[in-house]
Simulated assay, not measured.
Amino acid sequence: MRASPDDHLTIGEIIRRTGVPASALHFYERKGLIFSERGSGNQRIFSRHMLRRISLIIVAKRLHIPLSDVAEVFATLPTDHAPTHRDWQRVSRAWKKQLEERRRAIEALEQELTGCIGCGCLSMKACLLLNPDDALRGRGPGPVRLQEPDATFPDEPPHDQRRR
């Protein structure tokens, strides 16, 4: 007999299949990331298609993707039946776009960090060259050069023309 995405699995079967503890499953359910029903004896049972959601949560955690981002993506999926191939393609495209944006931000941060410590001086003297008279304070709080990787600042060449 072939398994159907709408077959039901007990919480014990879900735990064995995913390696996710019951406490985490309950947490994900409270957050609306996964859904269960009540079977005989009031035991939680999950549609088999919840395995895919749980697997994606595991992957997202490994990639340090916030559960709020996972919830945003999952909100567009049906909960009462297995998502279709088209549903998963749509979600995949949206998530891919988010991951590409994160990758670009990480690469820009890597370039900035390499530029900042590339000379090896490991001192704050470089700040006097990159931010004379604390000119960047007017751009707002925090590491504004890193938060605005494509921005140029007073007396600074455009991002792609900076010397490394």
Rank of each mutant, 00 (worst) to 15 (best):
Ile117Cys: 07
Glu100His: 12
Thr10Ile: 05
Leu51Gln: 06
Ser47Trp: 08
Gly39Thr: 06
Pro154Ala: 10
Ala60Gln: 01
Gln43Pro: 00
Pro132Arg: 00
Glu156Cys: 02
Ala135Val: 08
His159Gly: 08
Arg163Thr: 13
Glu72Arg: 15
Gly32Phe: 01
Arg53Met: 05
Pro132Ile: 03
Glu148Arg: 13
Lys96Ala: 08
Leu63Cys: 10
Thr76Ala: 14
Arg86Pro: 00
Lys31Pro: 01
Leu113Arg: 04
Thr79Ser: 11
Arg137Lys: 14
Leu136Ile: 11
Leu33Met: 05
Lys97Phe: 03
Glu13Leu: 00
Ala108Pro: 00
His49Gln: 04
Tyr28Asn: 02
Asp7Thr: 02
Glu37Tyr: 00
Leu77Tyr: 05
Val20Lys: 02
Lys96Ile: 10
Thr84Pro: 03
Ser23Thr: 13
Thr152Arg: 11
Leu99Asn: 00
Ser123Val: 05
Pro66Val: 10
Glu110Tyr: 04
Gly39Glu: 02
Ala75Thr: 09
Arg145Phe: 10
Leu128Met: 06
Asp69Phe: 01
Arg137Pro: 04
Gly19Thr: 07
Ser23Asp: 11
Ile15Leu: 01
Cys116Ala: 14
Asn42Gln: 14
Pro83Asp: 02
Thr10Ala: 09
His85Glu: 15
Ser55Trp: 10
Arg139His: 11
Glu100Asp: 15
Arg90Gln: 13
Ala75Arg: 15
Ile65His: 06
Ala22Thr: 01
Pro5Met: 06
Ala24Lys: 10
Lys96Arg: 12
Arg48Ala: 11
Ser92Arg: 12
Arg139Thr: 08
Gly32Lys: 06
Arg86Thr: 10
Gly142Val: 09
Glu29Asp: 13
Ile11Glu: 04
Ala75Glu: 14
Ile65Pro: 00
Leu136Ala: 01
Arg44Leu: 08
Glu112Leu: 12
Arg137Leu: 13
